[in-house]
């Protein structure tokens, strides 16, 4: 096999792995996908080491003994389960049919460019999620009504901060601070509203569920390094959420707003 050809296959595999990792797939799936794609094209020796922030792949060929190694830095972005599902389906069809590398690259480009649900639908869902959780955490109808717009605003703020590449700690902090501020103002203005369900409902929008789940599944498949990394991420997000709400409530209390 020519070295150029080997590199093309490797680039395709890396591309698929990169899309999956960015969208929030677990390590096992990324490593497995890259390995399968390379092996299906006749590369005998493939070793993949993936972490949430980077993918390392080394391939070797027995006949020509070409070693090609590639390191890809992964910048994580929004969780997008459709991309994971589509790349998964792609790798299955790529390995079982005789699709060419160029065709495969085109499909991957298409997947990478696919857009999430329209922004307003996601923002409304976020409002519904926050409001429903406020009911679950003991809110009444008034809390539900207040949490709807507050959840909506928090989600928009979080997208806005993400657009300017603010890191996840500050993002969680700011969003929860906004939620706490709105909740306190609402509970001070309307007697029927209590601020606890409003804040807890909004917190549920930002809890690190993805990080916890992936961390467990990484541990389960023996990827200790990324398991620990994602567990740490989950803890830091949790702290940032609590700190955001806490700081605002503390300040509110200190400047003599309505007492707790």
């Amino acid at each position: 096999m020519e070295k150029k050809r080997q590199k093309e296959i490797l680039m395709l595999a890396i591309r698929a792995g990169n899309i999956m990792m960015k969208s929030g797939a677990e390590i096992y799936r990324v490593e497995d996908t890259i390995e399968r794609i390379c092996k299906s094209c006749g590369i005998d020796y493939v070793n993949v080491f993936a972490t949430p922030t980077g993918i390392f792949v080394s391939t070797d060929n027995e006949e020509a003994s070409n070693t090609v190694t590639y390191i890809k830095r992964v910048k994580s972005s929004e969780t997008d389960l459709t991309k994971i599902s589509r790349v998964n389906a792609f790798s299955r069809s790529f390995t079982t049919t005789d699709m060419t590398v160029e065709e495969g690259m085109k499909i991957l480009d298409d997947i990478a460019d696919s857009k999430p649900y329209p922004f307003w639908i996601r923002a409304i869902s976020a409002a519904v999620v926050a409001a429903c959780f406020s009911l679950v955490f003991g809110g009444a109808a008034a809390d539900f009504a207040v949490t709807l717009p507050v959840g909506f605003m928090c989600y928009i703020l979080s997208r806005f901060l993400e657009k300017y590449e603010i890191n996840f700690f500050i993002r969680g902090f700011c969003c929860c601070a906004l939620a706490a501020f709105c909740a306190l103002v609402a509970s001070a203005s309307f007697g029927a509203v209590s601020y606890v369900p409003v804040i807890t409902g909004c917190i549920m929008l930002f809890v690190p569920g993805v990080a916890i789940t992936n961390s467990i599944r990484d541990f389960l498949s023996g990827n200790m390094l990324s398991g620990v990394a994602r567990l740490a991420e989950a803890c830091i997000i949790g702290v940032s959420l609590a700190a955001g709400a806490g700081v605002i409530i503390e300040i509110w209390y200190m400047i003599g707003g309505v007492s707790l």
Partner: peptide, 27 residues
């Protein structure tokens, strides 16, 4: 992929309210 079903399902169970109550007790 199993992830698609696990992530939305598990999020409800994450103790978001408890995180808040911990912070509230600290305040």
């Amino acid at each position: 992929a199993m992830t698609i079903f696990v992530i939305p399902g598990i999020l409800c169970l994450v103790p978001g309210a408890k995180i808040f109550y911990t912070m509230e007790a600290l305040i």
